[in-house]
């Protein structure tokens, strides 16, 4: 079977989208992967999944993104998906202070269930609703600094900073991974299966192969 060009990539990075229900996780994902937005999207039941391949720092990166249900009760199902993720986009809604207050609880979730060196990016979404803003940029910014997270504000509706947020986190993951390979943290070019992989190079021999493990 001939591999189609869109399936060639240097790295495969698994990323999870987390945060309270209704903050716009699914719309950030659909904006990023299909350039679509939906004002009345259904709430996510369980998990959804999408991918996009893009250029980051001159490399072809395939982002495999898991979008999870935000309601607390669903963590029983969704927390299993944190494992093996290299990055987490932790989203809150800039018009809803409680979704920002809950960010600490989401960080704890990650500490309990995700790999220790997962790259986390804090995202304040819905900046288009200017008149409803209730979380100041500065507060989020300083919180992110204290916790060592990168931070960005987005609007999935107006497609502002969505691309940039994914680019940034994928770039950060890439830098960590490539540093690791140089410093000898490299595992053999084993072909790890995609479902659970931390990072995989392209599976077959017809693309450049780079393979590392993050833990």
């Amino acid at each position: 079977m001939a591999r189609r060009p869109d399936e060639e990539y240097d790295y495969l990075f698994k990323v999870v989208l987390i945060g309270d229900s209704g903050v716009g996780k699914s719309n950030l994902l659909s904006r990023f992967t299909r350039n679509e937005f939906c004002l009345e999207s259904k709430s996510t039941i369980g998990v959804e999944f999408a991918t996009r391949t893009l250029q980051v720092e001159g490399r072809t990166i395939k982002a495999q993104i898991w979008d999870t249900a935000g309601q607390e009760r669903y963590r029983a199902i969704t927390s299993a998906y944190y494992r093996g993720a290299l990055g987490a986009l932790l989203v809150y809604d800039v018009t809803k202070p409680t979704t920002f207050e809950n960010v600490s609880r989401w960080l704890k979730e990650l500490r309990d269930h995700a790999d220790a060196n997962i790259v986390i990016m804090l995202i304040g979404n819905k900046t288009d609703l200017k008149h409803l803003r209730a979380v100041a940029v500065e507060d989020a910014q300083s919180f992110a600094e204290r916790e060592g997270l990168s931070f960005i504000e987005t609007s999935a509706l107006e497609a502002v900073n969505v691309e940039k947020s994914f680019q940034t986190i994928l770039g950060e993951i890439y830098r960590i991974i490539s540093k690791k390979s140089i410093s000898g943290g490299e595992t053999g070019p084993a072909s790890i299966k995609q479902g659970e992989t931390l990072v995989v190079g392209a599976q077959d021999g017809n693309t450049k192969k780079t393979c590392c493990s993050s833990s």
Partner: peptide
């Protein structure tokens, strides 16, 4: 098994909403 597909990736909403979600 080979592809590491588990039923929570597709079946949760079948049960939770009895096929009415999608």
């Amino acid at each position: 098994t080979e592809e590491m597909i588990n039923p929570s990736m597709y079946g949760s909403q079948w049960f939770i909403t009895v096929f009415s979600y999608s």
